[in-house]
Amino acid sequence: MIAISGVTKTFQRRGGGTHLAIDSIDLQVAEGEFVSILGPSGCGKSTLLYIVGGFVPPSRGSITVSGRPVTGPGPDRGPVFQEFALFPWKTVLGNVAYGLREAGMRKREAERQAEALIARVGLKGYESFYPKELSGGMKQRVAIARTLAYNPAILLMDEPFGALDAHTRVRLQNELLELWERDRKTVLFVTHAVDEAVFLSDRVVVMSRQPGRIKAIVDIDLPRPRHRDELLLQSRYQHLVIELERMIEDPPEEIRP
């Protein structure tokens, strides 16, 4: 479904010189697959996601989605960002209905569908609230609903739970899995949390830093549907977590001139 081939991204450094962010990435993601990109901060994993989203052009290489080359953003790939990126001037309802209205749907119908989605992410009753009145976890639920609203075939999730407290993060992981079990969208999920990647994914792509390269791709052969409490006790799960943790263990950060 997603084919990434030879994608390289270099950035212009301020004051001259270039910085190689990611180098020659090749990756195939099948339809309905949940793939996590795991790596330390600064490994370019988010950049890769932005390139797939069409927000940032690659310096070299190409990406196709369902056979068509990516030239820009499109409603077939819905992003969910760590920063939520909700429109502060719109209510919860307005945010979730945005994509439907952009697709040309009438206001009334768009709001009806948005209300249903808001209920599905557990925020019934909050339709007329503004984002600033919500907690972090609620904001991210709204952001997910806003993206699900225009029914993208692919979800691009950029450390979506990274800004949340530990408790909320676990709850939202569970809710995401429930949502995903229902319609099995293709998901590309960027994270630096090993347990999160193992819990959610079918495959985990481990990236190294500077430049960002694929270090390994690990199959997560845990049965679904997964339940966190059962999973934590399984030795297979524990082994996977330990294996991945060792893989991303990094030499101490050095300060580069």
Binding site: P79, A85, F87, E102
Partner: peptide, 18 residues
């Protein structure tokens, strides 16, 4: 303006001028 706001709108189908 946070570029991710613009990206979110672009992904939802808004044109660059929009």
């Amino acid at each position: 303006v946070e570029p991710k706001l613009v990206w979110s709108a672009r992904a939802a189908g808004t044109s660059p001028a929009g």
